[in-house]
Simulated assay, not measured.
Amino acid sequence: MKLSADDLAQIAALTLEHYNQCAEDFRAGTRDHDVSQNIAALLRHIEAEPPFTLLDFGCGPGRDLKVFTGLGHVAIGLDGSLRFAEMARADSGCEVWQQDFLKLDLPAERFDGVFANAALFHVPGQELPRVLRQLHATLKPGGVLFSSNPRGHNQEGWNAERYGAYHDLPSWRRYLTAAGFQELEHYYRPAGLPREQQPWLASVWRKL
């Protein structure tokens, strides 16, 4: 069923309100999450000369912005949540843009890499092709997109107060390929566990 403009507005508003309300708990609960595998997967595929200019798409409270800047790169955050944007600016000292994922306004060919860690699954499937094209356009030629999302069987809908879309690998590949990306690698997380205990699908893509 096609989502209306009102449906999309409600999805964005309620999901962002959830994150605004639980921002402090979210920061405390994710502060020590180890996503070094994901950060390394993005950085090793970028072919530009460092320091890289990176967009942390769905930066949350700013944990990974601090990692990127600590490695010597120029990182800009983007999040739809007002509270997360405020936290990320204060904690990282980085520039952070507050933008609804469904109403992006991104500069053309600005970034060497986009790090979308646990973010793009909030985009409804009908809007995902447009959002991916916008991320494609904000990357420099040959730039790299990293994404990690909770995987599923191509279902979407409400999970408590958050809206999510849960893709399998073939579906995700179709979306990214159609948006002009070439797959570089994919893997499941957490590492070292049986597949049924790896709920996260991570993938890395180059802009064609």
Rank of each mutant, 00 (worst) to 15 (best):
I46H: 04
A119K: 02
R130D: 09
T15F: 02
E161Y: 06
P190S: 11
P194V: 13
D6S: 15
S203C: 04
I76D: 10
K207P: 03
A165Y: 08
F111W: 11
A5P: 00
Y163R: 07
D6I: 08
E127I: 06
F52L: 08
H73T: 12
N117A: 06
K140F: 08
E196F: 12
A179L: 00
P50R: 13
D91H: 13
A88S: 14
I39L: 11
A90R: 13
P61C: 02
L184I: 12
K66Q: 15
W205G: 05
D168R: 07
L14S: 15
L14F: 14
L43E: 01
P50I: 01
E47W: 04
H167I: 01
V204R: 05
V35R: 10
S81L: 11
A12V: 09
W172M: 14
W172C: 09
S4T: 15
N38K: 00
A119E: 04
Q37C: 09
S147L: 14
Y163F: 15
W200E: 08
H122A: 14
P61F: 01
A88G: 07
R63Q: 12
R206Y: 04
Q126V: 10
V74K: 07
R27L: 10
A179T: 07
D105K: 04
G113N: 06
Q182W: 09
L208T: 10
S171G: 00
D100S: 12
K140L: 09
Q126G: 08
E49M: 07
H167Y: 15
K2W: 00
D56C: 07
L193C: 08
D112R: 04
N38W: 02
L106A: 08
I76W: 03
S81P: 00
A12P: 00
D6N: 07
R110M: 09
L3F: 05
V131E: 03
E185M: 08
I11V: 14
T53F: 05
Y166C: 05
R151A: 08
C94T: 08
R110W: 05
A165H: 08
G152S: 02
H73Q: 15
C22R: 14
A202D: 11
A5M: 03
R189H: 06
R174S: 13
S203F: 02
D6P: 03
V204M: 03
F52T: 02
R195D: 03
L54W: 08
L8Q: 06
H153Q: 15
D25C: 04
F52A: 07
E183H: 11
W158P: 01
H18V: 00
V204H: 02
Y19M: 10
C22V: 13
G62T: 14
P129G: 05
Q134P: 05
R189P: 01
Y166P: 01
Y175M: 04
G113Q: 11
T138N: 10
A23N: 07
A119R: 02
G113F: 03
A75Q: 01
A165G: 05
Q126F: 07
V96F: 07
E49A: 14
A13E: 15
F84L: 10
G70T: 05
A75S: 03
R83H: 02
A40D: 15
T69I: 10
R83S: 13
R89D: 02
A179P: 04
N38Q: 13
P190K: 09
H18L: 06
R110I: 04
I76T: 14
D7Q: 05
Q134W: 01
R44I: 01
